[in-house]
């Protein structure tokens, strides 16, 4: 992977408590050495929050479709008789 992607991976491992995450002490050393790491990690955390909101939105959309499929059909014959 490109170094930029490896950096995303490194931050992800820390933020999502991946088994490959660095020990806290090593991560703290990286934060001291790399002046942009803390800001990048914060930005990446916001991406994960945004993805969670987007995921919930998609799940709700899927639930609405399931609802329509299961329940809207029950009265479809009525709507055909009395459209509008």
């Amino acid at each position: 992977m490109r170094p930029e992607l490896e950096r995303l991976q490194l931050i992800e491992q820390q933020l999502l408590n991946n088994p490959a995450a660095l020990p806290a002490q090593d991560w703290n050393v990286r934060l001291l050495i790399d002046g942009e790491l803390a800001a990048d990690a914060q930005a990446q955390q916001q991406l994960y929050h945004g993805l969670r909101v987007a995921g919930r939105r998609q799940l709700r959309q899927e639930l609405r479709l399931i609802h329509e499929r299961l329940h809207a059909g029950r009265f479809a014959w009525l709507r055909r008789l009395w459209p509008g």
Partner: peptide
């Protein structure tokens, strides 16, 4: 969402949402 997102994270999360879309 309001109950689960803290005030610090909710606003940026909704901003990111636009770019996810």
């Amino acid at each position: 969402q309001a109950a689960e997102e803290s005030a610090d994270t909710a606003e940026p999360a909704f901003a990111v949402l636009d770019y996810v879309e």
